[in-house]
Design a protein around this nucleic acid. Structure first.
Length: 203
DNA sequence: TCTTCGATTGTCT
DNA sequence: GACAATCGAAGAA
């Protein structure tokens, strides 16, 4: 596959979070473990936008947990929830404004043997089709919170991938925020590729 | 295929 | 003390 291996730089993330969420679809999430390259194409992402967004962790303001979201764009915001799951986000917008994109699913491309060993007994289609699953599959934990995603040799980074036309990207309300009041609960801030295995058949 | 429910702990009120 | 940006097992249909 003739992939462009260029790493996304801070200016990519330093834009409105909805723009970044849309453009992250089709990009390549890369994780380096012991010199081994593990990667996949992003097929699902959600935007969380500022203190006024009541679904966003930053709704409560600046706390030790949300500190990363207020920092410079292009960093990883990794947090722990439900007593057992890690979630990966990319910090967006300008420094001081809390916004992030939750990476919800990827299509594994490289390092599938590693991923398989991290997801024993599960079919390939269930390896990375959820935010906690992909963190488990790529060994993403709180130790990566605040990590710079923009360095060419970063442990965790995002590179150019494949263009996905709008016709193949669906917009829906975000997942798992049922107790959040309107209008936030229904904002169509989730981007997901329809039938990713077909869209990326050549990848 | 679907719906329901338990796991398990950090964070904030 | 409540609840969480979830997952996967189990049971019903």
């Amino acid at each position: 596959m003739p992939a462009d291996k260029s790493v996304l730089k801070a200016f990519f993330y330093e834009r409105p979070v909805l723009t970044v969420a849309r453009e992250l679809i089709g990009k390549r999430l890369v994780r380096m473990v012991d010199g081994q390259r593990i990667s996949g194409l992003i097929v699902e992402a959600e935007a969380y936008d500022g203190e006024t967004d009541l679904a966003c962790h930053a709704r409560a303001g600046r706390t030790p947990r949300t500190e990363t979201m207020y920092g410079p764009p292009g960093r990883a915001y990794v947090y722990f929830t439900y007593g057992m799951h890690w979630m990966l986000n990319c910090v967006c917008a300008h420094q001081g404004y809390p916004a992030a994109v939750l990476i919800r699913a990827i299509l594994p491309l490289e390092g599938t043997a590693f991923i398989s060993s991290r997801r024993p007994g599960r079919p390939a289609k269930d390896w990375c089709n959820g935010p906690a699953k992909l963190c488990q599959a790529l060994e993403i934990t709180g130790s990566l919170n605040g990590a710079d995603l923009c360095l060419p040799d970063a442990e965790l980074r995002i590179e150019e991938g494949l263009e996905v036309p709008d016709a193949r990207v669906q917009r829906t309300p975000r997942i798992g925020i049922d107790l959040v009041p309107e209008p936030w609960r229904s904002q169509p801030w989730r981007f997901v590729v329809a039938s990713p295995e077909k869209v990326f058949a050549k990848a």
